[in-house]
Simulated assay, not measured.
Amino acid sequence: MEISKEELLYKLNVRQRTTLMDTLHISYTDVGPDYLVAEMPVSPAVHQPYGVLHGGATAALAESVGSAASALFIDHNSQEVYGIEISCNHLRSVSSGMVIATAKAIHIGRSIHLWEILVKDTNGKLISHCKLTNMVVSKRN
């Protein structure tokens, strides 16, 4: 049975309740066959001391969207997915508004997934360029 895009986004957003993603107000907004989009509001709650978006919050957004995207490609009855490496190049600062992260698949293998995540502001300006490697493992008993 095929699940609708709306239902899938709803399930992704419900699944993150009471997690870091909920704390950061990350929400999933679009999904396709090889991508997932999430957004996060930028406010003082995610600022670093100079009043701009903290790189760690950006990395958390990138890892969240990339990991959730990998979860769309696994068998949840027998597999789990874990981020094993993330790199982020922070190119521009932002102090308010919303940032939008788009994870696009570079490689979807049996045990390794590689994602490119572009984090942009609402004007489409690139804020951070990130890369996430996820490992797919057998579920622990």
Rank of each mutant, 00 (worst) to 15 (best):
E2S: 10
E2F: 08
K5T: 14
K5H: 15
L9T: 00
Y10V: 11
N13D: 10
N13E: 09
T18L: 11
L20H: 13
D22M: 00
D22L: 07
T23G: 08
S27F: 05
G32V: 02
L36Q: 01
V37T: 14
E39S: 07
P41R: 03
V46W: 00
V52C: 08
L53V: 08
A57C: 15
T58R: 00
A59P: 15
A62L: 06
S64T: 01
A68M: 06
A69P: 05
A69W: 01
I74A: 04
D75M: 08
H76T: 13
N77C: 06
S78A: 10
Q79V: 00
E80T: 11
Y82A: 13
Y82H: 12
I84N: 03
E85Y: 02
I86H: 01
S87Q: 14
C88D: 00
N89K: 05
R92C: 05
S96F: 13
G97A: 07
G97H: 07
A103Y: 01
A103P: 03
K104S: 09
S111V: 13
K120M: 04
T122E: 15
T122M: 10
G124H: 07
L126F: 07
H129G: 04
L132Q: 04
T133D: 09
N134A: 07
M135C: 08
V136K: 01
V137G: 05
N141Y: 13
N141W: 13
